[in-house]
């Protein structure tokens, strides 16, 4: 199981300075995996808000990015653990498959979009559409999320320790949403549901994997699909 604990132990495999080299060179180097010794610890300096840093990884790397990143950082990640020391642009960890991505700062829109597995932790806030189109990824946000978060989310969990914006979980499928603070509004077909034992256990486990130990799992409310829009019905006309 993926955890957000990006180990600091072990020597660096290599260090990359994006002030001196290009993102292309970095990704090319990360894609060149030694089948005998896949992965390794990697430090990326001076990310400078550049786009598509550490995308398409397919090995158990531990990548530490010292600063802010642009769009799609760690996009389609498999197996690797990526820690961003600053803030993220749009679509961090979009469509990630496995592994863990941790953002120390805040994330822009569409964090974890269509993610299919692994764990995404955002220690700051996430903007609109956090967890949009989710397909199995678990997202834990220490702060708050913007409007239309978990829009059309199909599988996986979104845990929000702060507040959620308008239209939370609009057109939701089977993904589960947990919010500790206020919800500005629920989207079409999203309803509050009872928190039972298995849900409390799920939140506790996700918070533990995210390394968040000062938040009481008992304070979360659960939201999910009312499943009223699963099939076309005349009486749902107003919702289409």
């Amino acid at each position: 199981m993926a955890t957000a604990d990006v180990t600091q132990a072990g020597a660096l495999s290599f260090e990359f300075d994006l002030a001196a080299a290009t993102v292309r060179e970095l990704n090319e180097r990360l894609h060149r995996v030694d089948p005998e010794r896949p992965g390794g610890r990697v430090l990326v300096r001076n990310p400078g808000g550049k786009h598509a840093i550490a995308v398409g990884l397919d090995a158990p790397y531990e990548v530490e990015i010292a600063g802010h990143v642009g769009y799609y950082c760690a996009g389609m990640n498999k197996l690797a653990s990526v820690r961003v020391g600053g803030n993220c642009g749009v679509g961090v960890a979009e469509n990630m498959m496995s592994g863990a991505v941790v953002v120390e700062g805040s994330a822009s829109q569409s964090a974890g979009a269509s993610g299919r597995g692994g764990l995404l932790v955002i220690h700051g806030d996430a903007s609109a559409r956090c967890g949009i189109s989710l397909k199995g990824l678990d997202v834990v946000v220490r702060g708050s999320v913007g409007h239309l978060s978990a829009f059309m989310a199909q599988r996986g969990c979104l845990v929000v320790c702060g507040d959620a914006g308008e239209a939370l979980g609009d057109s939701l499928y089977e993904a589960r949403i947990y919010v500790r603070g206020s919800v500005a509004g629920l989207g079409a077909d999203c309803v509050e549901k009872e928190v039972r034992g298995e849900h409390l256990a799920e939140v506790s486990e996700l918070l533990a994997r995210a390394g968040i130990d000062d938040v009481d799992p008992g304070e979360f409310r659960r939201y999910g699909s009312a499943r009223r829009l699963y099939n076309f019905h005349v009486e749902n006309l107003g919702s289409y």
Binding site: V23, Y72, G75, V90, G91, R129
Partner: peptide, 28 residues
């Protein structure tokens, strides 16, 4: 279920984002 898919991409809107999306696909 009767599947109704999104009509907009989840992680980009407009031509400037599309340019970065294409860059990401090329990098991957």
């Amino acid at each position: 279920i009767d599947q109704r898919s999104a009509c907009r991409h989840p992680d980009w809107t407009g031509p400037d984002d599309l340019e970065i999306k294409i860059e990401e696909l090329r990098e991957i």
